[in-house]
Amino acid sequence: MNAIAFTDVSRSYGNVLAVDGLNLTVETGRTVALLGPNGAGKSTSINMLLGLIRPSGGRIELFGRPPEQAVARGEVGAMLQDGELIPELTVRELVDFVRGLYPEPLDLDAILQMADLTDLAGRRAGKLSGGQSQRVRFALAVAGAPRLLVLDEPTAAMDVESRQRFWAAMRDYAAGGRTVLFATHYLEEADENSDRVIVVARGRVVADGTAAQIKAKAGGHAVRFTLDGQSAAGLDALPGVSAVEVTGGTATLRTADPDATVAALYRGTSLEIRDLRLAGADLEDAFLALTREP
């Protein structure tokens, strides 16, 4: 069964069309990234999915039901972008309260541990840092053991280490066969933490597939190596390569297919390749490539 199904969903604010005929389905048990630049319609889509705003057109179903029903049955948990906590309550009190609203919640201590809050359980929410509050909001989202977990740009206020821990916790949660949908504008996050990436721009799906497929489509990989005095002639004819730059003895090949490019570099040329480095798709380039007007 599909956990999420959007059928021709649109939403406008006045004259602005935020979501424009969105069609997508997410199977139960998948971890899916909703990737797009700011203003792509990610948050609007998520708010519609949670039943907080109504679509102007089209239909949304969660586990075959309208969003409000799925929410009322405790099947959905979410971490929204803006959500302050009650400053006078402690972390434990907040988590325990929200957990009590669901029919079959997780164990309190297990939630605190998963969200790395055990040491902060007695602290009042008003005294938490931005990253700590973010962890509490994650704890509130998973507290009811929802079948569908929705995260809207969850790592926005976190430092690098917190991010890594956060994604580890998310993967733990998803490992139980649960469905996760998260919105992000970081390609790396989508790449590392999902098994499918849906790229949205201007309120539409512009690409849908595994991270590798998306990157290939975006054509944003860079293969670099030390060229020294050797000739760069013919490098632009290698498979997948779209551009070649040589600066300070280093060659940079822009490629849509780094595997094929590197293989051809070794087998098809007589160059002496040293210091080979591969860089992931560049965010800017990827978006420009994917979201360009047709």
């Binding site: 907080l52 959500g83 909001r137």
Partner: peptide, 17 residues
């Protein structure tokens, strides 16, 4: 404050009617 700061939304996405 709860309305503006998003706590109400937090409650609205739970089974609480």
């Amino acid at each position: 404050q709860e309305r503006q700061a998003g706590w109400l939304r937090q409650l609205q996405i739970t089974p609480l009617p």
